[in-house]
């Protein structure tokens, strides 16, 4: 696996724009599900060692809901959608009907979170596929509610099995009350990244 990929400012801009469009689509889907507006932060693009990603997004021992899936097709990789426990609670209460009954998430609520992950990543990848003309298929998401570090660490270990260094396209979501309620990561493999850049006419 090539880990010495150098990206110029033009390529970084293009990737940021892709993140923008993908996350914009996902935010629209989320606000439709929620029936309330969801705002999106400016996406960031970073190239960093896989083991540093959790620290970079500040994952510690706060409780979060995480949806993790693989991307298959022409530009494979992984996607991770992380929501604060409170944001996940509020999405689930809207979808399943609430308010809830005590701590934790029921099986039905976990399925609802999985469906949220499905729709969000589907919209993100749909936008990316449309821009690049590449075939991109999400695998069904795995979902967990636990310590952020634990869920991210486990997801990143999967990523680290195929790559030492990762390009991280990060977008934050939220509403007026909680501006950073969610975090969306797309981590393509190095080959996938080269494929995407090539399609955009920005390859080597």
């Amino acid at each position: 696996m090539s880990t010495d990929l150098q990206l110029g400012p033009e390529q970084m801009d293009a990737l940021r724009e892709i993140g923008n469009i993908g996350a914009g689509n996902a935010a629209t889907s989320l606000s439709q599900m929620m029936g309330s507006p969801v705002q999106m932060g400016i996406p960031t693009v970073k190239f960093l060692p896989v083991e540093d990603i959790a620290a970079e997004i500040g994952a510690g021992d706060e409780v979060v809901a995480a949806m993790f899936l693989g991307v298959e097709g022409d530009a494979p990789g992984h996607m991770l959608f992380v929501m604060s426990e409170q944001a996940a609670r509020s999405v689930v209460d809207t979808l399943v009907g609430g308010p809830a009954h005590g701590d934790g998430f029921t099986e039905m609520e976990m399925s609802a979170l999985q469906e949220v992950g499905n729709i969000m990543t589907g919209s993100y990848l749909g936008a990316l596929a449309q821009i690049t003309g590449l075939r991109l298929e999400p695998t069904p998401p795995a979902v967990g509610v636990d310590l952020a570090g634990a869920l991210l660490g486990a997801a990143l270990a999967q990523v680290a099995m195929v790559s030492d260094v990762a390009l991280m396209l990060e977008s934050t979501f939220g509403d007026d009350d909680t501006p950073s309620a969610g975090d969306f990561l797309y981590v393509p493999t190095s080959e996938a990244l080269a494929t995407v850049l090539d399609r955009l006419g920005l390859g080597e």
Partner: peptide
């Protein structure tokens, strides 16, 4: 951390 059969390439790391 994530259930089996998610298709996310889950090895038992």
């Amino acid at each position: 951390m994530f259930g089996a059969g998610s298709g996310a390439g889950l090895f038992n790391i």
